[in-house]
Design a binder for these strands. Structure first.
Length: 188
DNA sequence: CTTTGGATCGTCT
DNA sequence: GACGATCCAAAGG
């Protein structure tokens, strides 16, 4: 996946990220659920209300990872999209483990079944070993620890579409997409 | 199976 | 001082 492909509206990028691979060091998972957040114009976005220390990565160049800490214990990860400066991003909500499952199980001892390793935004980060130290990391740099990789599996032609999860504003906007029928999707 | 409430702390008002 | 782009265990049906 080329960096320039992220320099677009997250509502276009998000469904195209379905079935792409996220690679973090020795672990690989296939993205099956995403949400778009549209910067200062989106009441559900962390960027609503302007730039702060926490959300500053979203205001930077596309193709970087925005990692935030929430609920006092969880990390979640977004891909920064474009146009640059508008703080738009795609939240990685769920993935299907592909490789490195032993490491994922070690990172998530609470997960009873393998399906529970990455079926939520904070679970995905915990399983993949993503935390705040990776905030702002380039996703495309082959030397980096993180990448999004296209292995030739196309996005679903007709993904599931619906409102975003866990927000209290902007609940009318259908900006969540998922691979319909996949057992690792976080919400039905 | 579904529902409920506790955990836990950085961030912004 | 309030509240999260959440997760999990426990309790109830």
């Amino acid at each position: 996946m080329l960096n320039t492909e992220f320099a677009r509206d997250p509502r276009d990028v998000a469904p195209e990220l379905l079935n792409k691979l996220i690679v973090a060091e020795d672990r690989v998972a296939r993205i099956v659920e995403v949400e778009a957040y549209c910067g200062e114009e989106d009441p559900a976005s962390h960027a609503y209300g302007g730039k702060t220390a926490r959300n500053s990565v979203m205001f930077g160049p596309p193709g970087r990872l925005y990692v935030y800490f929430t609920y006092g214990m969880h990390w979640c990860a977004n891909v920064v999209c474009g146009p640059e400066g508008l703080a738009r991003a795609v939240l990685l909500r769920a993935a299907s483990p592909v490789f490195g499952l032993d490491e994922m199980r070690l990172a998530r001892p609470r997960a009873r079944r393998d399906v529970d390793l990455c079926n939520g935004p904070a679970k995905l980060c915990q399983a993949m070993g993503i935390d705040g130290s990776m905030n702002g990391t380039e996703l495309i740099d082959a030397r980096g620890r993180l990448a999004i990789f296209d292995d030739g599996v196309d996005p679903p032609p007709t993904p599931g579409v619906g409102p975003r999860v866990g927000i209290s504003a902007g609940t009318d906007l259908p900006w969540r997409w998922w691979v319909d029928g996949d057992s690792c999707v976080s919400a039905r």
